[in-house]
Nucleic acid binder design. Structure first.
Length: 757
DNA sequence: TCCTCACGGGG
DNA sequence: GTGTACGTGAGGA
């Protein structure tokens, strides 16, 4: 028997084999072990007893060894235990095919635990997760006989794998979507190799030598999913020269096709993916939010979701939160439904009318305000779910029927909302994440706790501290999980979703914000604006953090939810609608905090489709405003802003603005033939289509506005655009518009005239 | 004036 | 392997 202590890299099932494969990195960092372990994987079927007996006979006579048993299980939405037929296999890799067959032969039965990733079974069974510290006992045949996890996903400072994790980066010299790469740069530790792509023989020989010499645990590429790995694999196949991208020789790289889907209110494109076995492949350009939280965030997501690192890198946070909920269910012995078969409860017409209210949004007081404090609820919706135990299975439980007091929403409000008034938040029990909580709050609570601790650490650590960046990335990864968790409640295909729970959360949110508003008004504040989970308040004489502390404390007392002072503005400007200057809009504003930092929302500089040059000019103007010590000094900045703008106008006229800074980048929302009105982005995409470059919905297209038809020039066309064709008047309009946004609150008008000489 | 299309928010 | 809100602004018919 061999004893090994180390970090878990991966768990997966090999076709045709018993149990699962585990890759372990030992604690000295010198060895990688490929081990095997038994893992029983089971799914359950429920239905009429006669049909279950038929299924039993059907499975009994099949060649694949399965063990069948009858039993009772808990189903989330029912108080009664459910009788199920449990089908267990010893070859986890065989389960998907077996289940497909069964569900086709017996489509009338209800299935549970049927389509879970094998890592979830392993996590639920053994308490594992990627990069978990494990102690294992291994027999002579390489089978794990005992496994003991030495930490949990909730460890704030797990023993760092750090330098032990060997990294190889591969990077082509140019973006393959725009030009044909000629070289690829490989780096491992201090070594770096510049390899020519042609001729291919030495390329493959060298790459193979590099892979064998460094034996990386992580292959970090740019465009590795969408181009480099498929290219190399094809090259290797064609030439017959082996290229050991996988560490596990028994497996071949796994391809997943490109796809386009709709989520978060927009079309999202995810390129083709290449998964490796025995080592991780992450393509920084095809990974979700890589720019936001990087590898550190991906590893954190792996730890808390227990999904494989290669998967979390490419999955939306929605699947992460979904995996966590399934894990909670598995551990609690609650059945995980196959797909989502939970229909919304029938609604009366009146209920439909009030349904689907979102967050509370006020119209701000237009104009410039000084000494305004912004108070935000921390992770408001997740906090509400945890605090008030809102979960798909708890939300329809009848509240105390004796209490018939009318609430703000009238008598048609959902029971959960009545419960809100029956139980003032500050007195209500529960929501502690302990036993007896709903599935969703139980899943959320440790996440909320960990995120808050991470953020506390960030406040305590000095700016130079080396751990800061990692904490920041991890906190950011958590943020996304928490944000999507709320949306997932209302998603019709979520396994553990229910629209009523979603509505209950927003109802609690509105009530919470209203209580905060009342609290502020009771303390003599003027409330300038409310937005979903934030509040802007002002009171003469209150301008320091300590002045607002009593208000914060009282809000926590009255709502039961955590709040934070986002900051105190020296001044903040709420902008009017462009279409009607008398109408305020809820989310267009900018301001400067007391520490001199800027905050802006909804203006040009925040938009992804604003040309870089426009962003830079607007940002420069805002930076200048931020230098004013007080709102009173803002007027004095006008001459300098005027100079800035004139110079920008002159740069444009004289052709001194780099074309690349004038590029607009927009996402295609549909296939080209589906446009009823061809948008500029669609016209640019059509130009690319004409030269054989097809773009899918969700992909970005970069273009310039040009004179004449079709009015745009796609940046990725083979020929460089002629600078003389740039539509300068159009860019001038964009410039004036962006300047107006900034200057409007200062009372400056006729901005266009500033550009005349 | 109406229609279509693209973007943001969270921290 | 997944969140089909909702409002604003821009541009063209």
């Amino acid at each position: 028997m061999t004893e090994i202590t180390g970090w878990l890299l991966d768990v997966y099932a090999r076709p045709g084999e018993e149990g699962v494969i585990l890759w372990l990195l030992d604690e000295t960092g010198s060895e990688r072990y490929c081990l095997r372990q038994a893992l029983p994987v089971a799914f359950h079927a429920a239905g009429p007893p006669a049909r279950l007996r038929q299924l039993w006979r059907y499975l009994y006579h099949r060649p694949l060894p399965v063990s069948l048993s009858r039993g009772e299980r808990r189903e989330l939405f029912s108080d009664q235990p459910l009788t199920v037929l449990t089908v267990q296999v010893t070859q986890p890799a065989a389960q998907p095919a077996l289940f497909r067959e069964v569900s086709r032969a017996f489509p009338d039965l209800t299935y549970f635990d049927a389509d879970l990733p094998v890592t979830l079974h392993h996590a639920a069974h053994y308490g594992t997760f990627p990069l978990a510290r494990l102690h294992v006992s291994v027999d002579e045949g390489g089978w794990i006989q005992e496994l003991e996890p030495l930490d949990t996903p909730w460890e704030l400072d797990p023993v760092p794998v750090g330098e032990h994790l060997r990294l190889l980066t591969l990077e082509p010299d140019v973006d393959p979507a725009h030009a044909a790469p000629t070289r690829v740069l490989a780096r491992a530790g201090r070594a770096s190799y510049d390899l020519a792509l042609q001729p291919s023989r030495p390329l493959l020989v060298n790459l193979r030598a590099i892979l064998e010499r460094h034996d990386p645990d992580l292959l970090l590429t740019t465009w590795g999913d969408t181009w480099l790995l498929p290219y190399l694999i094809e090259l290797s196949r064609f030439s017959g020269l082996p290229l050991p991208l996988n560490r596990d020789p028994a497996c071949r790289p796994l391809y997943r096709p490109e796809r386009t889907y709709f989520a978060y209110g927009q079309v999202i494109y995810r390129g083709q993916q290449v998964y490796l076995f025995g080592r991780w492949h992450v393509d920084a350009h095809n990974a979700v939010l890589y720019h936001d939280y990087g590898m550190e965030g991906i590893l954190e997501l792996g730890r808390v979701t227990s999904l494989p690192v290669q998967a979390v890198a490419r999955l939306s946070p929605g699947s992460g939160i979904s995996a966590m909920q399934m894990l909670t269910a598995l551990r609690e012995g609650v059945l995980v439904p196959w797909h989502k078969q939970q229909a919304e409860h029938f609604k009366t017409a009146r209920e439909l009318l009030r349904a689907d209210q979102g967050g509370l949004v006020y119209q701000p007081v237009i104009g410039l305000h000084r000494d305004v404090a912004e108070i935000d609820f921390i992770s408001m919706y997740p906090s509400i779910m945890a605090r008030f135990n809102i979960s798909p299975e708890t939300v329809l439980k009848k509240p105390d029927q004796n209490n018939q007091s009318l609430n703000r929403w009238g008598s048609s409000a959902a029971p959960a909302i009545q419960a809100l008034n029956s139980f003032p938040p500050s007195q209500r029990e529960g929501g502690t994440g302990g036993m007896g909580d709903g599935l969703v709050p139980q899943t959320l609570q440790p996440l909320l706790d960990k995120r808050i601790t991470l953020k506390q650490r960030l406040v305590e650590l000095p700016a130079w501290h080396p751990k800061r960046a990692a904490y920041k990335a991890r906190a950011s990864a958590h943020k996304w999980l928490l944000v999507t968790c709320f949306g997932y409640l209302g998603y019709k295909n979520a396994r553990f979703g229910r629209i009523e729970a979603h509505e209950a959360v927003t109802a609690f949110g509105r009530e919470t914000l209203l209580r905060a508003k009342e609290t502020a008004e009771d303390q003599g504040y003027e409330v300038l604006h409310l937005y979903v989970d934030g509040m802007w308040v002002r009171r003469p004489g209150a301008s320091r953090v300590a002045d607002f502390q009593p208000l914060l404390d009282e809000i926590v007392e009255r709502t039961g939810l955590p709040v934070a002072l986002d900051g105190i503005y020296r001044w903040v400007a709420f902008l009017p609608s462009r279409l009607d200057a008398r109408v305020p809009v809820p989310n267009r504003y900018f301001g400067v905090f007391q520490d001199g930092s800027l905050k802006m929302r909804g203006i040009e500089a925040r938009r992804q489709d604003t040309p870089l040059w426009i962003v830079q000019v607007q940002q420069a103007m805002l930076d200048r405003l931020a230098k004013a010590r007080s709102a009173g000094e803002l007027g004095e900045t006008l001459p300098e802003l005027r100079r800035l703008l004139r110079k920008a106008g002159l740069d444009l006229r004289r052709g001194r603005v780099p074309l690349a800074s004038l590029l607009v980048s927009q996402k295609l929302s549909r296939e080209l033939d589906e446009y009823r009105v061809p948008s500029p982005a669609a016209r640019a995409a059509a130009q690319l289509e004409a030269v054989g470059k097809h773009l899918r919905p969700g992909q970005r297209v970069r273009f310039l506005y040009t004179l004449g038809e079709p009015g745009v020039y796609a940046w990725d066309l083979p020929d460089r655009p002629n600078p003389a064709t740039v539509d300068r008047r159009y860019y001038r309009r964009l410039l004036v518009r962006a300047a107006e946004t900034v200057l409007q609150p200062l009372g400056a008008d006729e901005i266009g005239l500033w550009l005349e000489t």
